[in-house]
Design a protein around this nucleic acid. Structure first.
Lengths: 351, 351
DNA sequence: GCAATTTATCGAAGCGCTTCGAGAAAATCC
DNA sequence: GGATTTTCTCGAAGCGCTTCGATAAATTGC
C-alpha cells in the first residue's frame, strides 16, 4: 500500500562510506569539480550506481542558494478556468522549463497589489531563481521584484524599463488590415476595442492606423469604436457590434482587438441577420480555441501562446544561468532586453 | 535593473540577534511550539515584522524532510498541447494546491516506462511529498512509487490495489442511454468505442449494457461498434461512423465513448448528408471545449475536469498531512480508498 | 636532486532551519 | 518551606550537500 512511511534515502554519506572515500571527494566527482584519481572516480561512480544514489534537491538547494524553480505570476483574473490565453503561455513555459531541468511554480496576484501582503509565497521564501510575469500586473509588484533582486521577464506586457517579451501587436494588426485592403478590396475598415490604456491594445490600435496610412486611406475616427474602460470581452464585442451596425454609413470590414470581442460581434451579427463575411468581413486577434469552431470560422491573427511561454522561459533561464543567446525566431535587442514575438494571420471564413 | 545580484536575505539568526533571543526560541515562536513568555514572544514577533523575515523554504525543507511540493505525472502523449483533458485536471490540481500552500511540479513519462531511467526527477531527488498520477500509466511506475514509499493517488485510472479517483463512467453512460430511451423514445441505440482494454472505457461500455438491461431492451451485439486497438479519436469516430451508416438496419441513436469520437462521427454525418439529431441522435462523453461549438452543439456527459484535479489534490494533501476527511460531493470508501466523481448529462442539440 | 607545481584527498565549516535535551526560573502542591 | 512540576531559554546536534583550506603525494622544471 502507498500509505507506508517514506523510506530513508541514500545520502552522500552512504556513498562515501561505500566507496571508501570522503564526502567532499564524492561531491567533487559527482559535480565534476576539483581533482580525483581515475581509480577513485570509478569507485565512487560505481557506488553511486549500486546504491542508486541521487542527491537530495533540498540539501542542494540550501547549500547552493539555488532552487531550480521558476515562478510564474499572473493576475488572478487572468487565470480563470475559462480564459485559456495565459494558461497556454503557462503550459508553454512549463514545457520548456522541463527541458532545462527546472520546475515552475505558479502564483496569482490580485489586481490591486499590496507589497508584502500579496507577495507570492515563493518570492518571499526565496523558493525560485527567477520569475516570469505574465500580462499586465501592478507595477508595485515589479518594483518589488527589482528590490528583491530576483531576475524576471515580463510576458505580454511591454514596459520600457524592464526586460520583456511581447507580441508583435502592431505588426499583427497591420497584416490583418493590409490583408483586408489588398486581398479583399476593403476601403473602409472599423476597429473595435476596449480597455484602451493597456499597452498591448494601444499597440494594436497603432497597427490599425499605420496600415491605413500605408495604404493611403484617410483615418476616420468614427470607425474607431471603443469602450475605453471595459474589458475586451465577448460581451463588449456584442455591445459594440450594436453600435457598429447602427452607423449610417458603416464600414465593410471590422478588425477586433481580440477574438473574444470578434466572437461577440459575430453573435450580434447572427442574431440580427447580418451575414459574415458578406455584409461585413471580420478579423480577430489571438486565435483562441473557439475561433476555428465559429461559423464562419474566424479569420484572426494567431499568437503562438505556447511558444510565447517557451521563449520567456528560455530567456529567463539563460539570464538566471548567466548565459545569453539568440535564435532566429525572434528579434533581440540587447540594450533594452526586449523580445518581440511575431504573429501570423490565419485566414478562415470570416474575412 | 533586474540583473542585479540576489540580495542576502534576512535569516532566523538576524531575528534572534535583533530580538535578543536564541535561534531556537525564535523558531519556536514562529512555529507556535514549545514555551515562550509573552514578552519574549512579542519582541520576537516585532523583530520579524521589522526585519521582514520569512523562513527560507530550502532550509525548512531540508530540516523537515518535507517539501510542500506535489508531483503531477502523466504520460507524454496525454500532455500534448492540443488535448485539454488532462491539462484541465492539472490546472484544477494546481489551483487547489495553492490553497493548501503547496506547489505542484509536473512531469511526464513515456508510454513504455523504464524504472530508473524514466523516473521523474522530483521523485528521485525527493522533491515532492506525494504525487498525483493522471491517466493510464505503466504499472512499473506505480510500483516504483510504492517501493519508494511516496504517497500517491491515481486519477482517471482505476486500479483495484491503489488509492484512486475516477469518473463515474458507468453512471454517466447509464444516464445518457436512459435519457435517450426515456426522454427521447429511442429503442435502438448504438455504442461506438475504441481502445477497449482501457478500464474507463470498459466501464462506459458496461454502463451502456446496464442501461439497456434496466430498460428491458435486449442487447444487440452488432450495435456495439468498436475498434479495439485504436485510440478513441476524432479520426476513429469518423471511421466508425462510416461503418455505422452502412448498417442495413441502423439504430436511431448513438452513444460515443468520448466527445472526440462523437465529433468525428458528426463530421462524417455532415459530409454524407445525414442530419443530427433527426437522422440519428448523438451523445458524447467528456464535454470537451469544442462540444458546445459543434453544430448542433453536442449533448454529452460532462466531466468536471478542474474539480477532478482539485479533489485529487485535496485527497492527496490530506493523506500527506495525515488527516482524512470527506465532503458531500463524492463517495468515499475507506477500505479501498477509492473516490468516484459523478458526472452530469448536458443536453444540447445533438440528442 | 631539490624546489616549485600540480594532483589527490580529506576534515571542517557553513547554508538556514528544527528539535532535543539541559539548566534556570517560576509556579504549584501538601 | 521544600519537593515537584511547569515554564522559559538556550546551546548544540543534526538535515544532506558544497566548498574552502590544509596536508600529502605525485610531477615537473632545470
Amino acid at each position: 500500500m502507498a500509505s507506508q512511511s517514506r523510506k530513508k534515502a541514500i545520502t552522500i554519506q552512504d556513498v562515501a562510506r561505500h566507496a571508501n572515500a570522503s564526502i567532499s571527494t564524492v561531491s567533487n566527482v559527482i559535480n565534476g569539480k576539483g581533482y580525483a584519481s581515475e581509480s577513485k572516480r570509478r569507485e565512487i561512480l560505481r557506488s553511486v550506481e549500486i546504491l542508486g544514489y541521487v542527491p537530495s534537491a533540498s540539501a542542494r538547494n540550501l547549500a547552493l542558494a539555488r532552487t531550480h524553480n521558476i515562478g510564474f505570476v499572473l493576475r488572478e483574473s487572468h487565470f480563470t478556468h475559462s480564459e485559456p490565453f495565459y494558461t497556454r503561455i503557462f503550459l508553454g513555459a512549463e514545457f520548456e522549463s522541463r527541458k532545462h531541468d527546472h520546475y515552475v511554480l505558479l502564483a496569482t496576484i490580485p489586481e490591486d497589489y499590496h507589497v508584502g501582503v500579496d507577495t507570492p509565497r515563493f518570492v518571499r521564501e526565496r523558493n525560485v531563481d527567477g520569475v516570469i510575469v505574465a500580462g499586465k500586473v501592478d507595477t508595485a509588484f515589479i518594483e518589488e521584484l527589482v528590490s528583491v533582486g530576483l531576475p524576471f521577464i515580463l510576458v505580454d506586457f511591454s514596459h520600457a524599463d524592464y526586460p520583456c517579451l511581447s507580441i508583435d501587436n502592431r505588426g499583427g494588426v497591420i497584416e490583418a488590415v493590409s490583408f483586408l485592403i489588398e486581398k479583399r478590396g476593403h476601403q473602409s475598415i472599423a476597429f473595435l476595442g476596449a480597455d484602451m490604456t493597456h499597452p498591448s491594445i494601444r499597440e494594436r490600435l497603432q497597427g490599425y492606423r499605420i496600415a491605413l496610412f500605408q495604404a493611403g486611406i484617410a483615418l476616420n475616427e468614427d470607425y474607431v469604436i471603443t469602450l475605453g474602460s471595459a474589458s475586451p470581452t465577448h460581451e463588449t464585442g456584442f455591445q459594440l457590434a450594436g453600435q457598429f451596425f447602427r452607423m449610417p454609413d458603416r464600414p465593410t470590414a471590422v478588425v477586433c482587438v481580440n477574438d473574444a470581442m470578434a466572437l461577440g460581434f459575430m453573435r450580434y451579427a447572427h442574431e440580427h441577420g447580418y451575414r459574415i463575411p458578406d455584409d461585413v468581413a471580420l478579423i480577430g486577434f489571438d486565435d483562441v480555441d473557439g475561433a476555428v469552431f465559429a461559423s464562419p470560422p474566424l479569420t484572426t491573427v494567431r499568437v503562438f501562446k505556447e511558444q510565447f511561454g517557451e521563449m520567456a522561459m528560455r530567456q529567463l533561464i539563460e539570464k538566471v544561468e548567466g548565459t545569453s543567446r539568440t535564435d532566429g525566431s525572434f528579434r533581440y535587442d540587447r540594450t533594452t532586453e526586449r523580445l518581440i514575438l511575431s504573429t501570423e494571420l490565419v485566414v478562415r471564413g470570416s474575412a
